[in-house]
Design a protein around this nucleic acid. Structure first.
Length: 149
DNA sequence: GCCAACGTTGGC
DNA sequence: GCCAACGTTGGC
């Protein structure tokens, strides 16, 4: 591994993005090729968006129906003001899909794994943009049977 | 479809 | 600044 790619690897952070597939699904993102992650109207979620860097890995999670991490995406443009916000101080990032997971990681599977009991997904079910710890990523990778890169 | 949990708003 | 009322998210 070159020192440059090593730096990028070390700095890369992981985030989980929730979306209701009935409104906007993984397939919609794939169809678009890339998209602006807009409509976030929660301060904590917005602050997480503002911490995202180009190259960060995003776990796309379907809420409500067939709850599962279904695919991987990546940040291609760092935060800028949300053009869909009529008022307030909101931000978006641009993202693009990387690939669908061969085997989605379902919410019941995540809940069943005691090592994942501290995940924000389980502890703050309303937060739509959340950080995922490296240790949690490793466990999720094992469950999915593939590396998230 | 219900409702618990949480965030936000606004009256005081 | 507290907190009741309200709105929304998302698991079940």
């Amino acid at each position: 591994m070159s020192s440059v790619s090593q730096k990028i690897f070390l700095k890369m952070n992981y985030w989980l993005l929730k979306t209701e597939p009935g409104t906007y699904s993984w397939d919609d993102l794939v169809k678009k090729g890339s998209d602006m992650w807009d409509g976030v109207r929660n301060y904590q979620a917005r602050n997480n968006i503002r911490q995202m860097k180009v190259g960060d890995m995003l776990l796309i999670y379907h809420s409500v129906k067939n709850q599962a991490v279904v695919g991987l995406a990546t940040v291609i443009k760092e935060h800028y003001p949300d053009p869909t916000a009529k008022e307030g101080d909101w931000s978006v990032v641009d993202i693009k899909p990387v690939r669908k997971l061969a085997k989605p990681i379902t919410l019941p599977e995540i809940k069943a794994n005691t090592k994942l009991s501290q995940m924000v997904l389980l502890r703050n079910r309303r937060l739509s943009v959340q950080p995922v710890k490296k240790e949690e990523v490793s466990i999720l990778e094992n469950m999915a049977g593939e590396k998230f890169k």
